[in-house]
Protein backbone atom coordinates (compact mmCIF):
# COMPACT_ATOMS: atom_id res chain seq x y z
CA UNK A 1 0.00 0.00 0.00
CA UNK A 2 1.23 3.44 -0.91
CA UNK A 3 1.85 6.27 1.53
CA UNK A 4 -1.24 8.26 0.50
CA UNK A 5 -3.43 5.21 1.07
CA UNK A 6 -1.99 4.60 4.55
CA UNK A 7 -2.35 8.30 5.39
CA UNK A 8 -6.02 8.24 4.31
CA UNK A 9 -6.58 5.13 6.42
CA UNK A 10 -5.03 6.72 9.48
CA UNK A 11 -6.92 10.02 9.03
CA UNK A 12 -10.24 8.21 8.59
CA UNK A 13 -9.53 6.10 11.68
CA UNK A 14 -9.47 9.30 13.73
CA UNK A 15 -12.56 10.77 12.10
CA UNK A 16 -14.91 7.89 11.25
CA UNK A 17 -14.66 5.66 14.31
CA UNK A 18 -18.35 5.68 15.17
CA UNK A 19 -21.33 3.55 14.17
CA UNK A 20 -22.65 5.13 10.94
CA UNK A 21 -26.23 4.19 11.84
CA UNK A 22 -26.23 6.53 14.89
CA UNK A 23 -27.75 9.96 14.61
CA UNK A 24 -25.22 11.73 16.85
CA UNK A 25 -22.42 13.83 15.41
CA UNK A 26 -19.67 11.17 15.31
CA UNK A 27 -22.16 8.71 13.77
CA UNK A 28 -23.14 11.19 11.06
CA UNK A 29 -19.47 11.92 10.39
CA UNK A 30 -18.75 8.19 9.92
CA UNK A 31 -21.76 7.89 7.63
CA UNK A 32 -20.57 10.88 5.59
CA UNK A 33 -17.04 9.43 5.20
CA UNK A 34 -18.56 6.12 4.06
CA UNK A 35 -20.87 7.81 1.54
CA UNK A 36 -18.00 9.88 0.13
CA UNK A 37 -15.76 6.83 -0.18
CA UNK A 38 -18.54 4.90 -1.90
CA UNK A 39 -19.17 7.70 -4.41
CA UNK A 40 -15.46 8.02 -5.06
CA UNK A 41 -15.02 4.27 -5.69
CA UNK A 42 -18.06 4.21 -7.92
CA UNK A 43 -16.54 6.97 -10.06
CA UNK A 44 -12.94 5.68 -10.06
CA UNK A 45 -13.95 2.11 -10.94
CA UNK A 46 -16.58 3.21 -13.51
CA UNK A 47 -19.40 1.37 -11.73
CA UNK A 48 -22.06 4.06 -12.26
CA UNK A 49 -24.85 1.60 -13.05
CA UNK A 50 -24.43 -0.31 -9.79
CA UNK A 51 -25.05 0.02 -6.07
CA UNK A 52 -21.80 -0.40 -4.15
CA UNK A 53 -21.49 -2.41 -0.95
CA UNK A 54 -18.54 -3.47 1.18
CA UNK A 55 -17.74 -6.64 3.08
CA UNK A 56 -14.64 -7.79 4.92
CA UNK A 57 -13.85 -10.81 2.73
CA UNK A 58 -14.70 -12.74 -0.41
CA UNK A 59 -16.36 -15.37 1.77
CA UNK A 60 -18.74 -12.88 3.39
CA UNK A 61 -19.41 -11.21 0.02
CA UNK A 62 -20.38 -14.55 -1.53
CA UNK A 63 -22.62 -15.50 1.38
CA UNK A 64 -24.40 -12.12 1.18
CA UNK A 65 -24.77 -12.41 -2.61
CA UNK A 66 -26.18 -15.95 -2.43
CA UNK A 67 -28.65 -14.81 0.26
CA UNK A 68 -30.08 -12.23 -2.12
CA UNK A 69 -30.34 -14.23 -5.35
CA UNK A 70 -32.15 -17.48 -6.21
CA UNK A 71 -29.53 -20.22 -6.11
CA UNK A 72 -31.14 -23.65 -6.07
CA UNK A 73 -29.33 -24.66 -9.30
CA UNK A 74 -25.97 -22.99 -9.89
CA UNK A 75 -23.56 -23.11 -12.82
CA UNK A 76 -19.91 -22.31 -12.13
CA UNK A 77 -16.43 -23.20 -13.39
CA UNK A 78 -13.85 -25.71 -12.18
CA UNK A 79 -11.15 -23.05 -11.63
CA UNK A 80 -13.17 -20.63 -9.49
CA UNK A 81 -11.60 -19.95 -6.10
CA UNK A 82 -12.06 -22.63 -3.48
CA UNK A 83 -14.29 -20.28 -1.47
CA UNK A 84 -16.64 -19.84 -4.46
CA UNK A 85 -16.84 -23.60 -5.02
CA UNK A 86 -17.38 -24.20 -1.28
CA UNK A 87 -20.09 -21.52 -1.01
CA UNK A 88 -21.93 -22.90 -4.06
CA UNK A 89 -21.72 -26.45 -2.69
CA UNK A 90 -23.04 -25.31 0.69
CA UNK A 91 -25.87 -23.08 -0.54
CA UNK A 92 -27.18 -24.66 -3.74
CA UNK A 93 -29.09 -27.92 -4.14
CA UNK A 94 -27.32 -28.63 -7.42
CA UNK A 95 -24.02 -27.23 -8.66
CA UNK A 96 -22.97 -27.80 -12.27
CA UNK A 97 -19.22 -27.26 -12.47
CA UNK A 98 -18.05 -26.57 -16.02
CA UNK A 99 -14.70 -28.22 -16.80
CA UNK A 100 -11.88 -26.14 -18.29
CA UNK A 101 -9.75 -26.54 -21.39
CA UNK A 102 -5.95 -26.79 -21.21
CA UNK A 103 -5.68 -22.98 -21.03
CA UNK A 104 -7.99 -22.80 -18.02
CA UNK A 105 -11.00 -21.24 -19.80
CA UNK A 106 -14.36 -22.85 -19.00
CA UNK A 107 -15.55 -25.21 -21.72
CA UNK A 108 -18.97 -23.84 -22.70
CA UNK A 109 -19.65 -26.79 -25.02
CA UNK A 110 -20.44 -28.81 -21.88
CA UNK A 111 -23.28 -26.46 -20.90
CA UNK A 112 -26.63 -28.29 -20.92
CA UNK A 113 -29.85 -26.25 -21.35
CA UNK A 114 -31.81 -28.86 -19.41
CA UNK A 115 -30.01 -27.78 -16.20
CA UNK A 116 -32.19 -24.64 -16.01
CA UNK A 117 -29.81 -22.81 -13.66
CA UNK A 118 -31.02 -19.92 -11.52
CA UNK A 119 -27.58 -18.44 -10.98
CA UNK A 120 -24.21 -18.42 -12.74
CA UNK A 121 -20.94 -17.65 -10.95
CA UNK A 122 -17.87 -17.05 -13.09
CA UNK A 123 -14.60 -15.22 -12.59
CA UNK A 124 -13.69 -12.44 -15.05
CA UNK A 125 -10.22 -13.96 -15.26
CA UNK A 126 -8.46 -16.67 -13.32
CA UNK A 127 -6.29 -14.85 -10.80
CA UNK A 128 -3.91 -17.78 -10.51
CA UNK A 129 -3.05 -18.43 -14.16
CA UNK A 130 -4.39 -15.22 -15.75
CA UNK A 131 -6.73 -16.76 -18.34
CA UNK A 132 -9.73 -14.55 -19.18
CA UNK A 133 -13.07 -16.36 -18.95
CA UNK A 134 -15.83 -16.16 -21.60
CA UNK A 135 -18.24 -14.20 -19.39
CA UNK A 136 -20.14 -12.60 -22.28
CA UNK A 137 -20.50 -15.93 -24.10
CA UNK A 138 -21.80 -17.68 -21.00
CA UNK A 139 -24.21 -14.82 -20.39
CA UNK A 140 -25.53 -15.08 -23.96
CA UNK A 141 -26.08 -18.80 -23.54
CA UNK A 142 -27.80 -18.32 -20.18
CA UNK A 143 -29.92 -15.31 -21.16
CA UNK A 144 -31.89 -14.01 -18.19
CA UNK A 145 -29.88 -15.92 -15.55
CA UNK A 146 -28.22 -13.57 -13.03
CA UNK A 147 -24.43 -13.65 -13.40
CA UNK A 148 -22.12 -13.17 -10.43
CA UNK A 149 -18.60 -12.23 -11.50
CA UNK A 150 -15.49 -12.59 -9.38
CA UNK A 151 -13.27 -9.73 -10.57
CA UNK A 152 -10.33 -10.62 -8.30
CA UNK A 153 -7.04 -9.33 -9.78
CA UNK A 154 -8.94 -7.56 -12.60
CA UNK A 155 -9.75 -4.02 -11.43
CA UNK A 156 -7.48 -1.48 -13.07
CA UNK A 157 -5.90 -4.28 -15.13
CA UNK A 158 -8.41 -5.30 -17.81
CA UNK A 159 -11.63 -3.94 -19.28
CA UNK A 160 -14.48 -5.62 -17.44
CA UNK A 161 -17.19 -7.53 -19.29
CA UNK A 162 -20.62 -5.87 -19.23
CA UNK A 163 -23.01 -8.71 -18.63
CA UNK A 164 -22.64 -9.18 -14.88
CA UNK A 165 -25.46 -8.73 -12.39
CA UNK A 166 -23.18 -8.66 -9.35
CA UNK A 167 -19.44 -8.18 -9.37
CA UNK A 168 -16.98 -8.41 -6.48
CA UNK A 169 -13.27 -7.79 -5.95
CA UNK A 170 -10.81 -7.00 -3.18
CA UNK A 171 -9.43 -3.48 -2.77
CA UNK A 172 -6.01 -5.14 -2.36
CA UNK A 173 -5.98 -5.67 -6.15
CA UNK A 174 -5.50 -1.96 -6.75
CA UNK A 175 -3.36 -1.07 -3.75
CA UNK A 176 -6.05 -0.78 -1.07
CA UNK A 177 -6.48 -2.72 2.19
CA UNK A 178 -7.01 -6.48 1.91
CA UNK A 179 -9.97 -6.33 4.32
CA UNK A 180 -12.25 -4.47 1.91
CA UNK A 181 -14.22 -6.49 -0.63
CA UNK A 182 -16.24 -4.34 -2.99
CA UNK A 183 -19.59 -5.72 -4.12
CA UNK A 184 -21.27 -3.98 -7.06
CA UNK A 185 -24.90 -4.91 -7.72
CA UNK A 186 -26.75 -3.65 -10.79
CA UNK A 187 -29.26 -0.98 -9.81
CA UNK A 188 -31.94 -3.07 -11.55
CA UNK A 189 -31.62 -5.64 -8.74
CA UNK A 190 -32.86 -3.00 -6.31
CA UNK A 191 -30.54 -4.02 -3.49
CA UNK A 192 -29.98 -0.54 -2.13
CA UNK A 193 -32.58 0.43 0.43
CA UNK A 194 -31.77 3.98 1.51
CA UNK A 195 -34.50 4.08 4.13
CA UNK A 196 -33.53 0.84 5.83
CA UNK A 197 -31.19 0.74 8.78
CA UNK A 198 -28.78 -1.39 6.73
CA UNK A 199 -28.42 1.45 4.29
CA UNK A 200 -25.66 0.62 1.89
CA UNK A 201 -24.01 -2.32 3.56
CA UNK A 202 -24.23 -6.08 3.51
CA UNK A 203 -23.96 -8.14 6.67
CA UNK A 204 -23.17 -5.41 9.20
CA UNK A 205 -21.48 -2.10 8.61
CA UNK A 206 -18.05 -2.03 7.04
CA UNK A 207 -14.65 -0.98 8.32
CA UNK A 208 -15.07 2.64 7.26
CA UNK A 209 -11.42 3.79 7.61
CA UNK A 210 -10.35 0.85 5.40
CA UNK A 211 -13.05 1.71 2.86
CA UNK A 212 -11.83 5.35 2.83
CA UNK A 213 -8.29 4.05 2.17
CA UNK A 214 -9.62 1.86 -0.66
CA UNK A 215 -11.22 4.94 -2.22
CA UNK A 216 -7.88 6.77 -2.21
CA UNK A 217 -6.18 3.71 -3.74
CA UNK A 218 -8.74 3.64 -6.55
CA UNK A 219 -8.33 7.41 -7.09
CA UNK A 220 -4.58 6.80 -7.38
CA UNK A 221 -5.00 4.31 -10.24
CA UNK A 222 -3.27 5.90 -13.21
CA UNK A 223 -5.70 7.59 -15.59
CA UNK A 224 -3.80 5.83 -18.35
CA UNK A 225 -4.14 2.39 -16.76
CA UNK A 226 -4.78 0.76 -20.11
CA UNK A 227 -1.36 1.93 -21.33
CA UNK A 228 0.17 0.47 -18.16
CA UNK A 229 -1.75 -2.75 -18.82
CA UNK A 230 -0.34 -3.08 -22.33
CA UNK A 231 3.16 -2.41 -20.97
CA UNK A 232 2.64 -5.27 -18.48
CA UNK A 233 1.14 -7.51 -21.18
CA UNK A 234 4.25 -7.04 -23.32
CA UNK A 235 6.64 -7.58 -20.39
CA UNK A 236 4.93 -10.86 -19.49
CA UNK A 237 4.95 -11.95 -23.17
CA UNK A 238 8.71 -11.28 -23.26
CA UNK A 239 9.22 -13.14 -19.98
CA UNK A 240 7.24 -16.13 -21.29
CA UNK A 241 9.42 -16.18 -24.39
CA UNK A 242 12.67 -15.94 -22.42
CA UNK A 243 11.64 -18.74 -20.07
CA UNK A 244 10.63 -20.92 -22.99
CA UNK A 245 13.95 -20.23 -24.79
CA UNK A 246 16.30 -20.61 -21.84
CA UNK A 247 14.79 -23.02 -19.32
CA UNK A 248 14.21 -26.61 -20.42
CA UNK A 249 11.20 -28.67 -19.30
CA UNK A 250 8.89 -25.83 -18.33
CA UNK A 251 5.09 -25.91 -18.56
CA UNK A 252 3.89 -22.35 -19.30
CA UNK A 253 0.40 -22.29 -17.89
CA UNK A 254 -2.66 -20.32 -19.01
CA UNK A 255 -3.71 -18.55 -22.19
CA UNK A 256 -0.72 -16.70 -23.70
CA UNK A 257 -2.94 -13.94 -25.17
CA UNK A 258 -6.34 -13.73 -23.49
CA UNK A 259 -5.07 -13.22 -19.99
CA UNK A 260 -4.53 -10.76 -17.18
CA UNK A 261 -1.73 -8.50 -18.41
CA UNK A 262 0.39 -8.76 -15.27
CA UNK A 263 0.30 -12.47 -14.40
CA UNK A 264 2.64 -15.26 -15.45
CA UNK A 265 2.32 -18.80 -14.14
CA UNK A 266 4.57 -21.71 -15.01
CA UNK A 267 5.76 -25.00 -13.59
CA UNK A 268 9.27 -26.37 -13.92
CA UNK A 269 9.78 -30.14 -14.00
CA UNK A 270 12.15 -31.64 -11.41
CA UNK A 271 11.82 -28.66 -8.99
CA UNK A 272 10.15 -28.44 -5.58
CA UNK A 273 8.00 -25.27 -5.59
CA UNK A 274 8.90 -24.61 -1.97
CA UNK A 275 12.62 -24.32 -2.79
CA UNK A 276 11.93 -21.99 -5.72
CA UNK A 277 9.83 -19.65 -3.56
CA UNK A 278 12.50 -19.61 -0.81
CA UNK A 279 15.39 -18.97 -3.22
CA UNK A 280 13.55 -16.10 -4.91
CA UNK A 281 12.49 -14.70 -1.53
CA UNK A 282 16.17 -14.55 -0.54
CA UNK A 283 16.77 -12.49 -3.69
CA UNK A 284 13.99 -10.06 -2.71
CA UNK A 285 11.40 -11.39 -5.15
CA UNK A 286 8.10 -12.48 -3.66
CA UNK A 287 6.19 -15.00 -5.73
CA UNK A 288 3.30 -17.36 -5.12
CA UNK A 289 3.13 -21.08 -5.86
CA UNK A 290 0.34 -23.60 -6.44
CA UNK A 291 2.51 -26.63 -5.65
CA UNK A 292 1.38 -28.97 -2.90
CA UNK A 293 4.53 -28.43 -0.85
CA UNK A 294 3.85 -24.69 -0.63
CA UNK A 295 0.19 -25.02 0.44
CA UNK A 296 -0.95 -25.25 4.04
CA UNK A 297 -3.33 -27.99 2.89
CA UNK A 298 -0.39 -29.92 1.34
CA UNK A 299 -2.61 -30.34 -1.74
CA UNK A 300 -1.72 -28.98 -5.16
CA UNK A 301 -3.74 -26.10 -6.61
CA UNK A 302 -7.16 -27.28 -7.82
CA UNK A 303 -6.79 -24.78 -10.69
CA UNK A 304 -3.61 -26.40 -12.04
CA UNK A 305 -5.07 -29.86 -11.48
CA UNK A 306 -8.30 -29.04 -13.38
CA UNK A 307 -6.22 -27.72 -16.30
CA UNK A 308 -4.01 -30.80 -16.45
CA UNK A 309 -0.99 -28.56 -15.81
CA UNK A 310 2.14 -29.67 -13.99
CA UNK A 311 1.54 -28.82 -10.30
CA UNK A 312 5.09 -29.32 -9.00
CA UNK A 313 7.69 -26.55 -9.29
CA UNK A 314 4.94 -24.00 -9.81
CA UNK A 315 5.43 -20.23 -9.64
CA UNK A 316 2.95 -17.39 -10.06
CA UNK A 317 4.57 -14.07 -10.88
CA UNK A 318 2.54 -10.88 -10.70
CA UNK A 319 3.88 -7.51 -11.82
CA UNK A 320 2.88 -4.62 -9.55
CA UNK A 321 1.38 -1.46 -11.02
CA UNK A 322 4.24 0.81 -12.12
CA UNK A 323 6.77 -2.06 -12.24
CA UNK A 324 10.33 -1.31 -13.35
CA UNK A 325 11.19 -3.16 -16.56
CA UNK A 326 14.79 -3.57 -15.32
CA UNK A 327 13.40 -5.64 -12.45
CA UNK A 328 11.73 -7.93 -15.00
CA UNK A 329 15.09 -8.38 -16.77
CA UNK A 330 16.72 -9.20 -13.45
CA UNK A 331 13.92 -11.66 -12.68
CA UNK A 332 14.41 -13.46 -16.02
CA UNK A 333 18.12 -14.01 -15.27
CA UNK A 334 17.37 -15.02 -11.71
CA UNK A 335 14.82 -17.62 -12.82
CA UNK A 336 17.35 -19.27 -15.14
CA UNK A 337 19.94 -19.53 -12.34
CA UNK A 338 17.50 -20.42 -9.56
CA UNK A 339 15.79 -23.24 -11.43
CA UNK A 340 19.18 -24.71 -12.41
CA UNK A 341 20.37 -24.51 -8.79
CA UNK A 342 17.18 -26.01 -7.33
CA UNK A 343 17.28 -28.86 -9.85
CA UNK A 344 20.88 -29.60 -8.92
CA UNK A 345 20.06 -29.47 -5.19
CA UNK A 346 17.25 -32.00 -5.53
CA UNK A 347 19.60 -34.44 -7.27
CA UNK A 348 18.52 -33.91 -10.82
Amino acid sequence: MGESVRAAWSAAAGLAWSDPARLHHPGRTASLVLDQARASLQASLALADADIFFTASTASALTAIFERLPHRVVVTGAVETQITLDTAALQASTVHVLPVTGTGAVDLSTLDPSWQPQLAVLQVANAEVGTVQPVEDLSRQLAGVPMVCDATACLGRIVLPKSWSVLFASARDFGGPAGVTIVAARKSLGWSAPSASERGWLGGFPDIPAVAAAAIAAESLPAAWQAEASRAHQAIADLRQRISDRIPDVDLVGDPEHRLPHVLTFSALYCPGEALVSELDRAGIFVASGSACTADTRRPSHVLAAMGALTGGNLRISLPLGFDSQDVDRLAELLVDTIAKVRADVGY
Binding site: D249, D251, S267, L269, S291, A292, C293, R298, R299, P300, L304, A305, G308, A309, L310, T311, G312
Partner: peptide, 16 residues
Protein backbone atom coordinates in the same frame (compact mmCIF):
# COMPACT_ATOMS: atom_id res chain seq x y z
CA UNK B 1 1.80 -41.17 -2.15
CA UNK B 2 2.55 -37.50 -2.72
CA UNK B 3 -0.77 -35.79 -3.67
CA UNK B 4 0.91 -34.00 -6.59
CA UNK B 5 1.95 -37.23 -8.33
CA UNK B 6 -1.62 -37.90 -9.55
CA UNK B 7 -1.35 -34.77 -11.73
CA UNK B 8 2.37 -34.54 -12.31
CA UNK B 9 3.02 -38.01 -13.74
CA UNK B 10 0.43 -37.41 -16.54
CA UNK B 11 1.76 -33.83 -17.02
CA UNK B 12 5.32 -35.18 -17.29
CA UNK B 13 4.14 -37.64 -19.96
CA UNK B 14 2.51 -34.82 -21.96
CA UNK B 15 5.64 -32.64 -21.70
CA UNK B 16 8.14 -35.36 -22.52
Amino acid sequence: DDPGARYDIPAWCRMI
